[in-house]
């Protein structure tokens, strides 16, 4: 393992300390709490928080700022933050109008955020939550955990954050966040594994010429392992899963081509070039595009494609200014 770290046990706190120093608009709670929140707290607005395991940077701390999140809570690498940490995030975000929790659909996140919201209610803070499940690689199910939350989560932060900034109530912010979730689908792939600092070696192997379609952002197995294909074929493959799952025909969409951490922007733009051609052929109109590393998986090479179907309401929130360091609009 070659990583720019001091001690595998301190990666989360040292990263957040650095992040806060680099972004004067946010503050860091300190080690053991691992919350990044806005330094200037706007009063009388719904708070929006998110969080989850670390290793997905800039998610979620990079999305804290005007127009987006009020606070982000970090767990250990790939492990949900504990309820006591999440409660601190909720308190930071609360200014009397309640707090929306944006949760990615993983068992650990669900259990920890659920308990945190119970603790917050006991302290008199009203909370509501939405669960993002945009990964079409996994069948939706009420029996198992079901679909995972991946890069589409960033759109939910953006839209819920903008609605909250404009003075919407907790119920309204929750409703627009849910509407966003209902209109998002994502599909990813990976080419190399990632290495957890505390483990020190890759959890799985992919041969030099192989990729895995549908792999999750923690290296969870995908749909198929196959020979690496061209950008054109990859765009077709990823989009076909998305378009089979949800009807985007004739609609306007926001597109996100997301890198998993180890893939150069050059490749992401090449992929987007192909994605654009396919969408254009199918009469799906691109309203706004985001290409970059938004929801990563440490140093994993790979990508995901996300589509969000837009209407006038969602466009307005998507275009609203955001000062979050990792998502300036």
């Amino acid at each position: 393992m070659k990583k720019i770290i001091n001690n595998p046990n301190n990666v989360v706190s040292e990263m957040l300390e650095g992040l806060a120093k680099a972004n004067p608009a946010v503050k860091y709670s300190g080690a053991g709490v691992e919350v990044i929140s806005r330094k200037e707290k706007k009063q009388n607005k719904v708070g929006v928080i998110s969080g989850g395991g670390s290793g997905h940077e800039p998610a979620h701390a990079g999305y804290v700022g005007y127009g987006m999140l009020d606070a982000a809570v970090a767990g250990n690498v790939f492990a949900s933050p504990s309820p006591d940490r999440i409660l601190e995030g909720i308190k930071e975000a609360d200014s009397g109008q309640g707090v929306l929790l944006v949760i990615k659909n993983y068992s650990g996140d669900i259990m920890n955020f659920q308990m945190a919201s119970e603790l917050a209610e006991m302290e008199g803070i009203k909370t509501a939550s939405v669960v993002v499940k945009d990964d079409v690689a996994v069948p939706d199910s009420t029996y198992s955990t079901g679909r995972r939350g991946i890069a589409g989560t960033v759109f939910v932060h953006k839209i819920a954050g903008a609605a909250a900034e404009q003075g919407k109530t907790l119920e309204e912010v929750q409703a627009v966040a849910q509407k966003t979730i209902d209109n998002i689908r994502s599909m990813g792939m990976a080419m190399t594994p990632c290495i957890l600092p505390a483990v020190g070696k890759a959890g799985f192997e992919l041969a030099e010429d192989e990729c895995e379609i549908g792999m999750g952002i923690h290296g969870e197995p995908g749909i198929t392992r196959q020979k690496m294909v061209s950008a054109k074929e990859l765009a077709e493959r990823l989009l076909s899963h998305i378009l089979e799952d949800y009807d985007y025909s004739g609609s306007e969409v926001a597109v996100m081509v997301n890198g998993l951490g180890g893939t150069p922007l050059m490749e992401l733009y090449i992929l987007f070039n192909e994605v654009e051609k396919i969408l254009s052929e199918k009469g799906i109109k691109i309203y706004r595009t985001f290409v970059g590393n938004y929801m990563t998986s440490l140093e994993m090479a790979g990508c995901s494609v996300t589509l969000l179907k837009l209407d006038d309401e969602l466009k307005g929130y998507l275009d609203y200014p955001s000062m979050a360091p990792a998502f300036r609009v």
């Binding site: 504990s82 940490r85 068992s107 920890n112 308990m115």
Partner: peptide, 18 residues
């Protein structure tokens, strides 16, 4: 329970803690 919840994190932390 409180230590396991806050130190382990993830699913195991809350399940052991609880």
């Amino acid at each position: 329970g409180m230590l396991m919840m806050s130190k382990i994190g993830g699913s195991s932390g809350i399940l052991y803690g609880g």
